[in-house]
Write a protein that binds this DNA or RNA. Structure first.
Lengths: 189, 189
DNA sequence: AGACTCATGTAACCAGTTACATGATTGC
DNA sequence: GCAATCATGTAACTGGTTACATGAGTCT
């Protein structure tokens, strides 16, 4: 009956240009992987549902040297539904972070092992941040708000803020753990 | 066979003190709601599993004026399993953010409606930030790293950083949308 | 009278992951 | 020969939500 969030994720890609299920699965890694994710096993059935709901149409494109593909195109109904959805109120989602759950019990751990965890984790976020900053560097000017590029730009903006915040927190954790290790080695100061 | 992440979430609360399923469900809202969440319908079966795995033991406490309750206590095996888990490597989780998905298609929307969405969303994060800052204000000094309070403190630290970053991004979105609205009204500058 | 807290469970459903299944072409 | 890319699907399972189910005591 109604379109799922995954459905809107697919529509938000199809409104930019027609794509196959395979193309959509690739787009779920890059560029929208930072804020939405889905495997092909979830995408193909969802596309069938969207078609049944009249949100998209499909046509088979015959190809030589490669398997044929089904190109999906958004309909006017699909565009209208998406346009309406993007300004509907959004609640704060229930967060689930394994690393914060681990941090909650870090007082139980050997500081040396914890240090390794947070140093490695900082590097993961640092690498992600570097990727985002590289993409950001390619923008010569702010895209106009009515251009699809603004969507990329705005989400990238948040991605950079998110990763910077995470890196800062990992560093803080590492500092805390190092402080503790030094005190433990030197005797209480 | 092995303990699920939810299982570790429950153990991380039970290692601090014994609790009932009801108590654990409450703790899932406050204090650990920011980084982990579960309903009672998920908690009760998971406690049974943890008991079968020897991670916790239970005893029925008879109460007058209130229903009896089952108090769960962590075992030495449970404590060891948790202690080991907290320093095991954690990967970056696949993110799913509905508000960022909406931002990705904001170029389709009427700017007035989008403004309402991001102003409201900013207020939600601002309110959350205020709650965290109030709790933080109650710490007179940094807890020792080997005290359970350090777990609360470290996760709170990240919570504050997270909310500040989100508030800043929402403001940036609002500014972008306001810029656009003014230009649209005054003619292109 | 109605809502809230304490207290514990089960059942049906939905979303998402992992694995199964197939097959041609290109590059190392 | 082996892995990767292109291409589309299904099946089994896990994690999580919503709803069903019951019942006493307290507060407004």
């Amino acid at each position: 009956l109604s379109v799922s969030v995954l459905g809107y994720a697919l529509l938000s890609l199809l409104v930019r240009r027609p794509r196959s299920g395979y193309d959509l699965a690739r787009a779920m890694r890059r560029p929208i992987g930072f804020f939405w994710h889905a495997r092909h096993s979830q995408i193909y059935p969802e596309l069938a549902r969207l078609e049944a709901q009249g949100m998209v149409t499909s046509q088979v494109i015959e190809q030589v040297d490669r398997p044929d593909k089904k190109l999906y195109t958004i309909t006017e109904a699909g565009r209208t539904a998406l346009r309406q959805w993007v300004t509907e109120p959004a609640e704060l989602p229930p967060e689930r972070s394994e690393i914060l759950l681990k941090a909650y019990s870090v007082w139980l751990a050997e500081p040396e092992k914890a240090l390794t965890l947070y140093r490695t984790h900082e590097q993961l976020h640092q690498a992600q941040l570097a990727r985002y900053e590289q993409i950001m560097a390619e923008y010569e000017q702010e895209p106009d708000i009515s251009s699809p590029f603004f969507g990329d730009y705005a989400t990238l903006q948040r991605g950079i803020g998110y990763e910077r915040g995470y890196v800062a927190w990992c560093r803080w954790m590492v500092e805390q753990l190092e402080k503790r290790l030094k005190r433990g080695q030197d005797g209480e100061p």
